[in-house]
């Protein structure tokens, strides 16, 4: 009998492990907000998850190869269709769309749209977009609760999501123009920034996610 979703303390959050970067910092931040977290590379276990974080840094091409090899793509689709709260971070968020310009990669297609490279046509803008930047909430969402104008999060990326449907855009950031820095649909939410490296506001977002029932 799986533990009830209403009882946060009894839920183990699975951090999807697919060889995409250092996941330890995500786990440490989870622990800091009282979220019991374990790494998971097993699709069968992921299928039955109660709460999932899908992190990742690196390149979209090799990330998708690794996700598919382990059968994690189908398991992720299944767990999301069951209404399980899932948080994608950085590359983990990017591969939730249909396609990434990075390595011309077909990605998971959980959210309609593409991932686009910053054009780099302005010499004053450096790529990757690395550092702290302001996040403007465009749509109320339980996971983004408490973010106020002026709050900044930590970013490191050269590509950004362009969802087809504007209703999937939860928050934006300005770099080479405005881009979507948080996207969501049903029980899935994804951030381009790193909440685990964004100080108090980042921990607050993780704590919101810890309490979220997957409903908007």
């Amino acid at each position: 009998m799986p533990p009830s979703r209403n009882n946060i303390a009894s839920i183990v959050t699975l951090i999807v492990d697919y060889d995409a970067g250092n996941l330890a910092s995500v786990k440490r931040a989870c622990q800091q907000v009282g979220l019991a977290a374990e790494f998971c590379a097993d699709p069968d276990r992921l299928r039955h998850a109660e709460r999932v974080i899908f992190p990742g840094v690196g390149a979209a091409g090799s990330a998708m190869v690794s996700v598919k090899e382990r059968g994690l793509d189908e398991a992720l689709r299944e767990v999301i269709s069951n209404g399980c709260p899932v948080l994608g971070i950085c590359l983990g968020m990017q591969i939730s769309l249909d396609h990434s310009e990075e390595n011309d990669t077909s990605t998971l297609g959980l959210i309609e749209g593409n991932v686009t490279r910053f054009r780099m046509d302005r010499p004053d803008l450096k790529v990757p977009h690395m550092g702290w930047n302001e996040v403007t909430v465009r749509q109320h969402h339980p996971v983004l609760a408490g973010i106020v104008p002026g709050d900044e999060f930590y970013f490191v990326h050269g590509y950004y999501p362009t969802p087809k449907d504007q209703s999937a855009v939860l928050a934006t950031t300005n770099y080479e123009g405005d881009f979507a820095c948080a996207i969501g649909k049903a029980s899935y939410v994804g951030t381009q920034f790193h909440p685990e490296k964004s100080g108090r506001v980042g921990l607050r977002l993780l704590s919101n996610f810890a309490k979220w029932d997957g409903q908007c």
Binding site: A24, S25, R28, A29, Q32, E196, K197, S198, G199, R200
Partner: peptide
């Protein structure tokens, strides 16, 4: 440090 400081 990493377990109590959540910045890069």
């Amino acid at each position: 440090v990493a377990s109590q400081v959540f910045i890069p």
